[in-house]
Structure formats: structure tokens, C-alpha cells
């Protein structure tokens, strides 16, 4: 699904990612954990194609294609989805408008016809119910005046409607209470299948109680310093990130 090889990225001439390699197979869930400033968000942004990041080395292959050559919208249409840490508010265009525009962009790209208005509404109604959201939510401006939890659930709603192949969740768990966290986790788990892969970027182990990862990576100072099974997340939780920083420093 996704192969990252020795990726180096800098922002304003400052190296942020310093040789990341990662291989995500179809159906796998990878958690990327690390302290603040380790480069977690940079990695998610670079994968989604945000401008302002300079790739100085390495390559990223997604379904056999060079991901870094693709525009953000092409990545999205090919099935890469980033759930934002800070979703943007866009009053003046409704949530449901964006959902329709996004779904139809993906469908057109695949050569499918535009989704029928009634079928679409039925599809979306099912999804919002599962996320414990009110239908009125669809007709509000995009993220306009949403609470932190509502914004995150809206990201998951978009993900559920688009059914992307590769979902990158950038600190989706931050700022969520336990109930909202469970709802978000249910949304992710219901999409888990041999066709869908996930990268969960998180600071805390908490989310991983509800979404069980296949692999946990620890990111520090722009490198993956340790990879392991779910037990690695628990180790981080009990020991903190201090020992990681020391080992990262030692390996420089």
C-alpha cells in the first residue's frame, strides 16, 4: 500500500524528517508515536501533499505510484485521506456540500457516475447516526462553530463516506473526552478491512486501547527509533518519552 524510503524533509531550511522508512501493507494499522516536535505532523502533512515542506531525499510509493509527484487532490482521489488535527472552518458552504463534492470527485476519478441525491442522503444518514451526530450537522457550514469533538467526528464522517484506502489520522484523539474517543475509534474500526490501511499519529497510548494497531513506531528527532507490537505503546505510556530522546540522541 505505502512504502516510505529514507524520507528527508525540511521546513524553511530546517531538517524535520531525517530518514524515515516505513512499510504499510494493505489492511494494516500502524501507530506512530512520539513526543512533541518529533516530526509526526510533518509526516502526515507531507503524505497529504501540503505545501511548505521541502523533500530533500528519499521516496514515497503509494500503490506503486510516486506519491510525492501527485497534487493533494490527486492523492485524495487515489484514496489517501488525512484526518486533520485542526480541521478548518469554512462558513458559507455546508458540510453536506463538501461531502458531495468530495465523494463525486473520487467517483469521477474512478470513472463512476455522480451519486444520486437520494442515495447519497441515505448513505450519509447511516454514517452520521453511527457517529452520534444530528442530521442538522450536515447543513451547517463546514466545521463552523463546531466543538473540538464535533470537528474530529466530522473528519471521521468524511472518511467514512469516502472510504479511502489509506487513512492518516493526525492526532485525532487529542482533545477528545472518552465518549468521543470511543465514537471515533468505532468509526475507524468499522472501516478496518483487508483493503484499508491506517496510520494513526498520536502522542498518547489512549487511542490504541480502542484501535488495536499491528505495528507501533516511535518517532524521535525525525527518525523512527523503535518499532514493535502494541506492547511498545504500553511501554511508552509507563516510561514516557525520556528514554527515547536519550536513545535518539545517542544514535546521532
Amino acid at each position: 500500500m505505502l512504502n516510505i524510503e529514507n524520507l528527508h524533509v525540511q521546513v524553511d531550511s530546517k531538517p524535520i524528517l531525517q530518514g524515515i522508512s516505513l512499510d504499510v501493507q494493505a489492511g494494516e494499522v500502524h501507530a506512530i508515536m512520539g513526543p512533541n516536535g518529533s516530526g509526526k505532523s510533518t509526516l502526515s502533512h507531507v503524505l497529504a501533499g501540503r505545501s511548505g515542506y521541502e523533500v530533500t531525499g528519499g521516496r514515497v510509493t503509494y500503490k506503486g505510484q510516486n506519491l510525492l509527484d501527485m497534487k493533494p487532490e490527486e492523492r485524495a482521489r487515489e484514496g489517501v485521506f488525512l484526518a486533520f488535527q485542526y480541521p478548518v472552518e469554512i462558513p458559507g458552504v455546508s458540510n453536506i456540500y463538501l461531502l458531495k463534492a468530495a465523494l463525486n470527485a473520487v467517483r469521477r476519478h474512478r470513472g463512476d457516475s455522480e451519486v444520486d441525491a437520494m442515495d447519497f442522503l441515505q448513505l450519509v444518514r447511516g454514517k452520521i447516526k453511527a457517529l452520534n451526530l444530528d442530521e442538522q450537522f450536515l447543513y451547517r457550514g463546514i466545521n463552523e462553530g463546531f466543538s473540538g469533538g464535533e470537528k474530529k467526528r466530522n473528519e471521521i464522517l468524511q472518511m467514512a463516506v469516502l472510504e479511502p484506502s489509506l487513512c492518516i489520522l493526525d492526532e485525532t484523539d487529542s482533545g477528545l473526552d472518552i465518549d468521543a474517543l470511543k465514537i471515533v475509534a468505532d468509526g475507524v474500526n468499522s472501516l478496518r478491512s483487508p483493503e484499508h490501511s491506517f496510520i494513526l499519529v498520536t502522542h498518547y497510548q489512549r487511542l490504541l486501547n480502542y484501535i488495536k494497531p499491528d505495528v507501533v513506531h516511535v518517532l524521535a528527532q525525525g527518525r523512527i527509533v523503535k518499532s514493535g507490537g502494541p506492547e511498545l505503546a504500553l511501554e511508552l505510556e509507563s516510561k514516557g518519552y525520556g528514554w527515547i530522546d536519550q536513545s535518539a540522541a545517542a544514535s546521532v
Binding site: A48, G49, R50, S51, K71, P72, E73, R75, A76, R77, F81, L82, F84, P87, V88, I90, P91, G92, V93, L98, A101, A102, A105, V106, H109, G141, I142, Q158, L162
Partner: peptide, 27 residues
């Protein structure tokens, strides 16, 4: 950042700009 948000949902850049312009007025 709003342009990028829409692009990341599959909307091309020009359409994203148009959508944001419309949104600004439509509010």
C-alpha cells in the same frame, strides 16, 4: 490552509479557491 483542506478532500485547487470565494460571499 482552507484551500489545502478542500484539496485534501479531492477538490482541485481552482475549484477550491472558487468554493472559498463563494463561501465568503454566501455567508
Amino acid at each position: 490552509s482552507a484551500v489545502f483542506y478542500l484539496q485534501s478532500r479531492g477538490v482541485d485547487e481552482l475549484s477550491a479557491r472558487n468554493m472559498l470565494t463563494f463561501a465568503f460571499a454566501n455567508e
